[in-house]
Every structure is written in C-alpha cells, then in structure tokens.
C-alpha cells in the first residue's frame, strides 16, 4: 500500500489535523519525520488514495503543511 505523508511541524497541529480528518472519515497517524531544512517535524501518514482530500481539508481548515513523497 502506498502511504502519503505531510509535515505539519507542531504536534498540536498534527493531532488537530488527525482529528479533523477522522471526522471526515480519513484515517491518519501522527508520525515524526525529518524535514530537510527544519529538522524534526511532526506530521501525518495516510493512504495515498486520500492525499487529495487530505490536502483539501487541511488547506480549508487553515492548517499549514508540506508534502512528502509517497512511501511504499
């Protein structure tokens, strides 16, 4: 299964985003990743097929994020 990942930064916003997505029926898990410029970052992992909806929902909610490439 392919997974999409986004970096959010703050653990508070990562949890907020996770719960927001859950209300929309999207399962996402909080992960810790390394951002090339900023170092440690909290983010979300989710099914790649949900990627479009994830970005749309979070953008609409005003939660900033950066995309990561899909993992297999």
């Amino acid at each position: 299964m392919e997974y999409g990942k986004i970096l959010i930064g703050s653990i508070s916003y990562a949890i907020k985003a996770k719960r927001l997505l859950a209300r929309e029926g999207i399962t996402a898990n909080v992960v810790k990743e390394t951002d090339k410029t900023e170092g440690c970052s909290n983010g979300l992992s989710f099914s790649e097929r949900d990627a479009y909806r994830v970005t749309a929902i979070l953008s609409q909610a005003g939660i900033g994020f950066k995309m990561r490439e899909a993992d297999r």
């Binding site: 930064g9 703050s10 653990i11 916003y13 951002d35 410029t37 900023e38 170092g39 440690c40 970052s41 909290n42 900033g64």
Partner: peptide
C-alpha cells in the same frame, strides 16, 4: 519541532 532551527518555532 523544527529542531534544525536555532530559533523557537513561529507558531
């Protein structure tokens, strides 16, 4: 968060 940044995060 943002551990590579010597400044505190902006949020």
């Amino acid at each position: 968060s943002e551990s590579a940044n010597p400044e505190m995060p902006p949020y």
